[in-house]
Simulated assay, not measured.
Amino acid sequence: MLLSGYVAGEDGTTNSTDEVLLVRMIPFADLNTKEPSYGTGSFAFKDIRYPIADGLIASASNGVDSVYRNEPPVVHECMLSWCVRRVRSSYEWGVYSESTEETFLNIATEPDPWPWTVIDDFFTYWPNITLEAPAVDFPDTNVTYSVWNDTAFQIMVVWDDFFPSFYTATDRDSEPVLRFKDYPNGPTTRSIDSNPWLAPKNVTRHMEGLASALTNVMRSNSKTTEALLGEAYNQEKFVHINWPWLIFPLLLLLLSLVFLVATIIKTSNDTDTGFWKTSAMPTLMYGLPQDMRKDSISTTSSDGTPHHDPRKVRIRLLPKQGWRVSGQVQPAPTAPPGFI
């Protein structure tokens, strides 16, 4: 098979105008007859039953110049296969993610007949795909998953558009062109910004992306999927304390407590200083003594009406001596609880 090369001149020499093959993709089944290569349609994956696509991807190892230098290409055999995956899903902060815990491939324990039947231009893919995987709740039993042959056929023929295909450049300075859909009525050509199959691109990762996209299409089919009832997520509350912001309030509270305790200790031994509440309530309730009432009326207005002069009346409440009025100590009247 021609995996790498260029169009040499008539004398067999190489020049800058020779067309060069950068990437070639070769299926392991003939496009027109579906006859398998290597007997089983695969070179390295002979134990996989009924793959979706299998072929070689040959890429120039270091661009156009590496082909002109006759350097060997980088070759991968890539295969897409039906499988059953056991996944664990999670949903956090609006993001859904999955992790694959186990994968069950469609492994052939014995040789199977070739699944294609071709009569003239009529292609038939006859087997239904069935896979078994252990049940999660019942380890001793298996669950069977199936894909009808019509569905498998519709998916597999899509890959015929790209296997086979060619990626060539007319010279060192020209833009490479992709040739695909290589059917009898003529291939389709187009220019692409970047070829994911061209070295040093990660071909394996690109195939994994294609497999994931195909899986998502299969799982998103509303006619064949089954919705399960259950909680999609569980809410948990987490409290994060930013301690630097609490230093000042806590320090202020601590200093206030220290100041209060220090004040109590300092004044606990002072028995000479009196404590009372400044309030006019006793005077309003019990009034002034009779003699102080006379002293408080010291002046008379022009019309003969007496009036009070509060500046001549001084009342002081002492904790042990009662009332002191105008410099003379008067016994305090009996006050209700709560008054000193």
Rank of each mutant, 00 (worst) to 15 (best):
residue 161 D to W: 01
residue 181 K to N: 14
residue 273 T to H: 05
residue 172 R to I: 07
residue 199 A to W: 10
residue 200 P to R: 07
residue 266 K to L: 15
residue 138 F to V: 15
residue 240 H to I: 11
residue 225 T to D: 02
residue 229 L to T: 12
residue 205 R to V: 09
residue 239 V to P: 00
residue 186 G to M: 02
residue 199 A to G: 02
residue 220 S to H: 03
residue 248 F to I: 11
residue 154 Q to L: 07
residue 175 E to K: 08
residue 164 P to N: 06
residue 237 K to H: 03
residue 230 G to T: 11
residue 218 M to R: 08
residue 255 L to V: 15
residue 263 T to V: 08
residue 214 L to V: 03
residue 192 I to F: 05
residue 164 P to T: 09
residue 224 T to D: 09
residue 246 L to F: 10
residue 177 V to C: 08
residue 254 L to S: 12
residue 234 N to R: 09
residue 261 V to A: 10
residue 222 S to G: 01
residue 221 N to E: 12
residue 253 L to V: 14
residue 145 Y to D: 03
residue 226 E to R: 10
residue 216 N to M: 03
residue 272 D to C: 06
residue 249 P to F: 06
residue 200 P to S: 10
residue 266 K to P: 00
residue 182 D to G: 00
residue 238 F to W: 05
residue 234 N to S: 09
residue 241 I to Y: 10
residue 191 S to Q: 15
residue 243 W to M: 10
residue 141 T to R: 13
residue 232 A to F: 12
residue 247 I to L: 11
residue 230 G to A: 13
residue 166 F to Q: 01
residue 256 S to G: 14
residue 169 A to Q: 03
residue 137 D to W: 02
residue 210 L to A: 10
residue 233 Y to D: 10
residue 178 L to T: 01
residue 270 D to P: 01
residue 248 F to E: 07
residue 218 M to N: 03
residue 140 D to G: 15
residue 152 A to M: 11
residue 164 P to L: 07
residue 189 T to V: 11
residue 239 V to C: 04
residue 177 V to G: 00
residue 246 L to R: 05
residue 255 L to T: 14
residue 151 T to Q: 13
residue 144 T to A: 12
residue 249 P to N: 04
residue 230 G to K: 07
residue 193 D to P: 01
residue 215 T to E: 07
residue 220 S to M: 06
residue 215 T to R: 04
residue 146 S to T: 13
residue 230 G to F: 11
residue 270 D to S: 09
residue 240 H to K: 12
residue 183 Y to D: 10
residue 271 T to M: 07
residue 155 I to H: 06
residue 206 H to D: 09
residue 186 G to S: 09
residue 195 N to I: 04
residue 159 W to Y: 15
residue 266 K to M: 10
residue 173 D to E: 15
residue 181 K to H: 14
residue 142 N to M: 15
residue 215 T to V: 01
residue 235 Q to C: 02
residue 216 N to V: 01
residue 237 K to W: 02
residue 191 S to N: 12
residue 200 P to W: 09
residue 226 E to M: 08
residue 222 S to N: 05
residue 160 D to C: 08
residue 204 T to I: 11
residue 206 H to T: 04
residue 150 D to E: 13
residue 227 A to R: 12
residue 228 L to W: 13
residue 216 N to K: 06
residue 174 S to V: 02
residue 255 L to G: 00
residue 208 E to Q: 14
residue 142 N to P: 00
residue 143 V to E: 14
residue 222 S to M: 06
residue 193 D to L: 09
residue 269 N to Y: 03
residue 236 E to M: 03
residue 175 E to H: 02
residue 160 D to N: 14
residue 260 L to P: 01
residue 260 L to C: 13
residue 209 G to A: 11
residue 180 F to Y: 13
residue 226 E to P: 00
residue 201 K to W: 00
residue 151 T to P: 00
residue 158 V to A: 12
residue 226 E to T: 13
residue 270 D to K: 06
residue 149 N to S: 15
residue 274 G to K: 08
residue 265 I to E: 03
residue 256 S to Q: 09
residue 266 K to C: 11
residue 139 P to K: 02
residue 174 S to E: 07
residue 263 T to D: 10
residue 189 T to P: 01
residue 137 D to K: 12
residue 264 I to A: 10
residue 233 Y to N: 08
residue 194 S to K: 13
residue 186 G to Q: 02
residue 222 S to R: 04
residue 258 V to W: 06
residue 275 F to H: 07
residue 240 H to Q: 09
residue 250 L to M: 13
residue 140 D to F: 15
residue 254 L to V: 12
residue 248 F to D: 03
residue 228 L to S: 09
residue 150 D to W: 01
